[in-house]
Write a protein that binds this DNA or RNA. Structure first.
Length: 130
DNA sequence: CTTCTAACA
DNA sequence: TGTTAGTA
């Protein structure tokens, strides 16, 4: 269900290939990395290895540059998106007061033997959908 | 031959 | 950003 995302994240492209795919110079690609806009992996003898996701990101960076943004500005955009996705992760694992109330209530019924664990229909989900 | 880091007539 | 030097 996500084999494609996995392959998009596989870092196997040398900088030379990325140059052709993005029309950027090696200098620029390395510079953007120094500005923390991309994080290619390293391998072999300290050589940079890029993923297709990295290539897309570089293409995206080029667009932002055309829109007049500087390195710091682009980084803020990505930092912002990263913070938003982190909040979503926490949100999924945070139970609302109502959820806690329901869980406690269900456990109480089970402990009292007034209800069979098999006939559990209105069980509170452990986590909410996105 | 390709890539890397560091540096600048 | 370009470019070059000296490596790995």
């Amino acid at each position: 269900m996500r084999g494609k995302e996995l392959r998009r994240s596989l870092s196997v492209l040398p900088i030379g290939t990325v140059m052709k795919l993005t029309s950027l110079t090696a200098r620029q690609i390395r510079y953007y990395e120094s500005q923390k806009l991309i994080f290619p992996q390293r391998s072999d003898g300290n050589r940079r290895l890029y993923s297709l996701a990295d290539v897309d990101r570089l293409l995206e960076i080029k667009d932002y540059l055309d829109d007049g943004l500087n390195m710091a500005g682009i980084r803020e955009v990505y930092d912002q998106k990263q913070r938003e996705s982190e909040q979503r992760k926490n949100q999924d694992h945070q139970l609302t007061d109502d959820d806690v109330r329901k869980i406690l209530h269900d456990e109480f019924l089970q402990a009292g033997g007034l209800k069979t664990p098999s006939a559990q229909q209105p069980q509170a989900p452990l986590q909410k959908p996105l």
